[in-house]
């Protein structure tokens, strides 16, 4: 997965599978593949990995009332109705180079799900390789899943972030685009409704856009060496506690995955409130 033998492997390569591995396990009852899309209509709905279920980002991965990620009960229901047990290997993939799949990965880890993996390259690579697709929506026998957690070690909240500003042992990583970081734009042009009142970034944050970790051509992760260099060059090193954020907490889950699993940083938190919380909060400082 990480290339030739000469190249250093990812720190936790067991959480990453390639498209061939998924092809080889399509009939494996212990493996459940789930597609996680921002836009299921134009993606899962037009054809998906045979046997794959859909995790709908809006409906399944978020609390429908409070601003929060899905509740433990929602997660247990989601996994249960898709036939997932504690012994299942759950493989996530999706649109936008696994952006939302990585968010689901973080959600599952928050509730202590052990064997979750990402399919490297996501939907893009699967399509480019002309692998089989189906529109059939599978059903699996319902299970009763009991989650653990929450693992608060991987999640940061606003006050914690506030206390971390310019703290020597902690570093904030803003994974949005450079224009969002400087406040020139309030949201990326393709998500224009997801504004905050003010543009800019949390004081002291380093700007390392999430997409820099991806090979654009096929959606796979860059090599360990490239990723090491990307973060090291901005002073983001494993001796520090790292807090990632973006606009609504999804892109930052992706960078959280890279730092925690591909690079093996011991202490990485995702601030899912992100800019739409911070940028709207009274008396919370910003920089432009």
């Amino acid at each position: 997965m990480s290339g030739t033998l000469k190249e250093p492997a990812y720190a936790h390569s067991e959480v990453l599978v390639d498209t061939q591995w998924v092809s080889d396990h399509l009939q494996d009852g212990s493996v459940r593949v789930a597609e996680v899309d921002y836009d299921p209509l134009a993606n899962y709905g037009t054809g998906h990995v045979p046997g794959a279920v859909l995790f709908d980002w809006k409906k399944d991965m978020n609390d429908q009332l409070n601003r929060d990620i899905l509740s433990r009960q929602q997660l247990e229901d989601l996994l249960g109705r898709n036939g997932i047990t504690k012994d299942t290997t759950t493989v996530l993939y999706g649109d936008f180079n696994n952006w939302f799949a990585a968010y689901a990965f973080w959600d599952l880890k928050y509730y202590g799900v052990k064997d979750v993996r990402l399919m490297n390259g996501g939907r893009k690579k699967w399509l480019l390789e002309d692998r089989p697709l189906t529109k059939d929506v599978p059903t699996y026998q319902r299970t009763s899943y009991v989650a653990s957690g929450p693992e608060e070690r991987i999640r940061a909240y606003k006050d914690y972030v506030s206390a971390s500003i310019r703290s020597s042992g902690r570093v904030l990583v803003d994974v949005r685009g450079p224009k969002e970081f400087t406040g020139e734009v309030l949201a990326p042009p393709e998500y224009p409704t997801e504004h905050a009142q003010r543009g800019g970034h949390i004081p002291g944050a380093q700007n390392i856009p999430w997409a820099q970790a991806v090979n654009d051509a096929d959606g796979t992760f860059k090599t360990r060496a490239q990723l090491d260099e990307l973060y090291k060059s901005k002073g983001v090193t494993p001796d520090k506690e790292v807090i990632t954020y973006c606009r609504i907490g999804e892109r930052s889950s992706f960078s959280w995955f890279v730092l925690r699993y591909l690079l093996g940083f011991p202490d990485v938190k995702n601030y899912d409130g992100s800019w739409t919380e911070w940028g709207n909060s009274v008396r919370y400082p910003i920089e432009k």
Binding site: D39, A42, N43, D95, R123, K124, L127, L128, P188, E190
Partner: peptide, 15 residues
Amino acid sequence: GKTMGSIEGPRHFDV
């Protein structure tokens, strides 16, 4: 039915 190319925009990738 096989891939002869791809398109990508800010909202969607397809073959």
